[in-house]
Amino acid sequence: MQIRNLKVAFRTYGGRVQALDLHRLDVRPGEILGLVGETGSGKSMTALSILRLLDRKAEVQSGEIIFQGEDLLKKTEVEMRTIRGRRITMVFQDPMSSLNPVFPVGEPLVRIIAAHEKVSFRAARQRAIDMLALVRLPSPEKVLSAYPHELSGGMRQRVMIAMALSSNPDLLLADEPTTALDVTIQAQILRLIEELRAHINASIVFITHNLGVVARIADRVAVMYAGDVVEIGSTADIFRNPGHPYTALLLQAIPRLGQKRGTLPVIEGTVPVVTHPQPGCYFYPRCPVRIERCRVERPEAKDLGDGHWVACWKQDGRLPPDNSEGNGEV
């Protein structure tokens, strides 16, 4: 899948807010792409744009989302229905609000399978049980007839993953799938996703704000800021050798186990809300290495080699060496 120059704006009472101004994002077949960024950076908006599930107040102004050679933005709603939930599926953050509390969890699962594969109820039921076994749920027959409140958060999220995989999709969008879970349960789900990779051939876009989770699961990482990808590259490159000052600062700002530091380096200010699109770099006001050019001209993404793209005017955008102890390297 390829996204090019995608612009999405929201109409609000305070005027138009530019939610996405995404120049370039590619998802390779079979990879896990980590999409990271802070609140309001446009991670979820990207996923919703791909599925064409944007709110009515949102408006796609321009751009294209090419999925298997076809532009999703040119599809009609009827055509989208053959893609959404079949070829592209989604797992949301909060499994409790994605499941209907008055139906057993198996109900939607069996129905999805029956509708998509046009098989008998009995065959769909058997497939549903297989799917629940695939996500390592103990006694899948019992889970099938359990109500959402009878399952724990981790089990519900497993059901959601089973549902998203039941149509054998080509692309799975996972929007903060482990954020609502405890760390020990999160570890279970991350391990499950890793194990499932062998059984499915879907690309996974794993959206999260947690850099630790991304380091754990992703093959490549895209860092978003103010509606655009500022850096993309292999997980090792992003974490060992960040090219954009925002990525570097973000990595320094996390407290890490095993390295106690007196004060944490901070990024001054907050993530901007883009009401008036500006010509320059959106990170300019907070950037410690900014130059005059950054204010007037939007940096284009440059390839640093090995598919490591950085949108920054400073040749490689590296920060000057940080003086606080324990910088970067673990």
Binding site: V183, T184, Q186, A187, R191, G212, V213, A215, R256, V330
Partner: peptide, 25 residues
Amino acid sequence: QALLSAVPVPDPGQRGREIVLEGNV
């Protein structure tokens, strides 16, 4: 030990060292 090992560390070199507990609280 399990809780500590399950904390995702922002370092891709540290993958797979976590102790994954079975079941729920």
